[in-house]
């Protein structure tokens, strides 16, 4: 059996679902961000797989995958900054315990 684009897509889809599950079940902000990373990486995997199997010399998807990596880094840096700020103020990063704003 040869490995085709479908195999990569299935791996990507599984990663996406794992990420969605993590994002929806974790209460810790860092945990949610790990789920986000999973989803981001699943889309990067998809893009690179499409490039590989859609004919020679395609680079658009790979370039976009590079952008996704940079984006994930930028987002993580900012997110951790915000988490530290929240921890200083509320002494927790549990999103369920951040309840001053409601309604």
């Amino acid at each position: 059996m040869t490995i085709g684009v479908t195999h990569f897509l299935v791996v990507g889809a599984v990663m996406f679902c794992c990420g969605l599950y993590t994002m929806s079940t974790k209460r810790n902000a860092i945990g949610i961000l790990i789920g986000v990373e999973l989803v981001l990486n699943s889309s990067a995997l998809n893009l690179v797989a499409f490039d590989r199997y859609m004919g020679a010399g395609r680079l658009d998807g790979q370039i976009m995958a590079l952008f996704i990596i940079v984006l994930a880094a930028a987002e993580a840096a900012l997110a951790v900054g915000i988490c530290i700020n929240v921890y200083r103020n509320l002494a927790t990063v549990d999103v369920d315990k951040a309840t001053q704003l409601r309604g």
Partner: peptide, 10 residues
């Protein structure tokens, strides 16, 4: 504000 930015960011 800290809580607002956390929710917005997540």
């Amino acid at each position: 504000a800290a809580e607002a930015s956390l929710k917005y960011m997540i």
